[in-house]
Amino acid sequence: MAQTQTKEELTKYLDPKVLSKITRLDLQARLVVEGFISGLHRSPFHGFSVEFASHREYVWGDDIKHIDWKVQARTDRFYIKQYEEETNLKATFLLDASESMLYGAAGKKDGLTKYQYAAAVAASLGFLLLQQQDAVGLAVFDEDLRTYLPASANPNHIKSLVHAMAINNPKLKTSMEGICHSMAEKIARRGLVCLVSDLFCDVDGLLRGLQHFRHYDHEVVVLHVMDADELTFPFQGNTMFRGMEETGRLTVEPRALRQGYLESVEAFCKEVKRKCVANRIDYKLISTTDHLDAALLEFLAARAAATKKSGAKR
């Protein structure tokens, strides 16, 4: 029962509404990761390496193949062997900090802006990876590269990452193609590149940038973060829409435009997804109201694919 309660307590931090009440990003990341891991019912991230690290007592859910039978014979208790995992993944997060990512806070009590949600996702994943001794880097950009932290496997690196995410205040337009090209040149060793953005930019240019990563054999994951409002367009009554990133203003009756708008959004997402698939890029559309495990699962799936690929190459 106690275990169940702990699990429920931790998984609640996957909910963005709950998470929005926690102001510190590092704390958010830790809670998300712990919640996420506790929800998996097993610990898949230990014991995959060849170098023994230590024993720990068996807990329910552990794979019995890792039980050290010798120790069991000696002590009559179940211990499983833990190994030091090697750092075999270099992940770099590209976090969009353009003005459009600011949408979402206005008029909501417990909502996250797209930027906050994206930062939470990136921090959580970074924290997770660092715990597994993977190297994590970060690039925060708008129309220019604002912050770039090269990948590091130092567990304390998470503080630098979180700090970099927190100090950036989105206010400018996006220019992703250039950023992608420049980052592709900066990241020397192949690894995993995760773009967290609303993708309100030139899609063809973005794809050309992502193809650059693919050219250097990076695994590329696109986490397309959109606000729930942007996906459902729930507005009523005459509204003046004031465009972010200098896209003008428009006074309309939203209900009349809803269907056409949703069709446009769906067409856009489908197009992006189609192009990503065509370039062997993992694509995941995430709403800011989605629990964060969706993003984490998607990322892990991509990471597993990357690990498998790197292992195959080795």
Binding site: F200, M226, M244
Partner: peptide, 13 residues
């Protein structure tokens, strides 16, 4: 309302 997804709105109109 400050709005990010103007491109879809304009497209719809």
């Amino acid at each position: 309302l400050d709005w990010a997804a103007m491109r879809f709105l304009l497209d719809s109109i």
